[in-house]
Write a protein that binds this DNA or RNA. Sequence first.
DNA 1: AACCAGGAGAGAG
DNA 2: CTCTCTCATGGT
Length: 218
Amino acid sequence: MSVRTGIVRMLELLSKAYGRQKWWPADTPFEVCVGAILTQNTSWKNVEKAISRMRKEGLLDASAILNAPAHVLEDAIRPAGFYKQKAQRLKHFCTHTYFNGISQMSLQDARAHLLSLKGIGRETADSILLYAFGKPIFVVDAYTKRIYGRVFEGKDSTALSYEEVRTVFEKALGKNTRKLNEMHALLVEHAKLHCKKSFPKCQGCPLLKMCNFGRNQA
DNA sequence: AACCAGGAGAGAG
DNA sequence: CTCTCTCATGGT
């Protein structure tokens, strides 16, 4: 079975096992951007706390973020960690992003624009493109690389680069926003239930039959 | 009580 | 281009 076929199969199996995901967990496109920055190397649980505190402080708004003193913003997002960096990144994002123009830009231009911003790397940019603006692009994260490595290579991760993994998934699923959205969301769900870093729960794993890592385990 | 979490940037080699 | 270090809180 080719990797391309395997990815299509993966989407079917995960979809059947976990059902339709509702993603990104945010009320507005702007909140998606905030969450994408706050969740950098941070568990979503802690991001929820930070966003909740921002909402309470009325900070879920670009102008409010810009008007707030640094220490106020820092204090609100503290539960998400890296609070000094992230406070700067949020302010920088609010200042320099051509937010309302992104939806009209081509995918390539929009991505280049986001990547040019300090604090917005590939995963954050792609999360924003896909989940805030509905652009057909695939988001690669640590979960994706781990699951990909285990399933297709029998290793705990893959040596493929970010762009290589992204391309493989996009070739398999096509430029279909709904599928790309669902695939990433299902991979995150799957990682939490059956593919944690230290404790893979291979029993009952919906990918067991097609997973090379599963054969090595037991 | 170490280890990990839906990364990104800067610097070195 | 590939490592390595830093940033930092909170859950397990």
